[in-house]
Amino acid sequence: MAIFSLFFYVLTGILVCILYYHSANFLLDYFVKKKSNDSSIRAFIFIAPAFFILIIFIIYPVLETVRLSFFDKYGREFVGISNYIWAIKDPEFRRGILNNLGWLLIVPTLCTFFGLVIANLADRLWWGTIAKSIIFMPLAISFVGAGVIWKFVYDYRGPGDQQIGFLNAIVVSLGFEPQAWITIPIWNNLFLMAIMIWIQTGLAMVIFSAALRGIPKEMLEAARIDGANELKIFTSIIIPYLQQTILVIWTIITILVLKIFDIILAVTNGQWQTEVVANLMFDWMFRGGGDSGRGSVFAIVIMIAVIPIMILNIYRHREEQKI
């Protein structure tokens, strides 16, 4: 029964879509015989659906969110910047900002570093492909799934009990006290970040791996003949050569980290001082019947953090087009 409705839903959705393009183009061919008209009307047919979706789902909401951030919780009365002032005074928001900064400093750095190291090591070893597959695998897993996986690793039982969490089992076997890792303020953020690093290192590794193949072999051989050791080659040739790639990976992971939400919601839901801005935003969408003013403020904070990267992307695209 459920399977049947699945097929029904899926087919209708896709058929409606195909029907639009086919019939619109068919009608155009039928009514407009002149060839000169082909371009403009057909361009409209090609663009219209995507363009309207872009307007409805991205452009209008962005502008509306900016407006709502200056209005009360129902979006009716103009309240000036009082939502922003409230946010600055809100201890949860301050905590969220601090945590987000921590995430921004640590996660992209470690992902890029680990990714670069692993890509370098794996490309030289015969079992490197298998190693890369394993490191890469978490990228396919959802944040919530990864949250469950790691919450299980961090599981805590009382000091006398048999530990079933892997981390505590190691700690106990080394002779230390077991810890409830995700409830220790400040440090628990690091344990949550570990989940993100575990997921995203694979991404950095794959992109580095592709970029490393672009380094001319002659250059590396020349350096070896001149007597440079592997470490010297790594710091003086490989890193400068990969500068652009490092920047790209850094920005991709930074954007992901800015929006980090699922992991926090699944593992701690912001308790024990692990709050982040995106989770606060989700929370305020529904807390107390939903407060669109405060929720919008949080969304805008994330947006502002993204803007420098957006400008950088547009600038880079322009440069590419010139070449």
Binding site: I58, P61, I302, V306, M310
Partner: peptide
């Protein structure tokens, strides 16, 4: 530009 717009910006509206 839309590539990096966080989807949080769209949710409430």
């Amino acid at each position: 530009a839309s590539l990096v717009v966080p989807l949080q910006m769209s949710l409430i509206p």
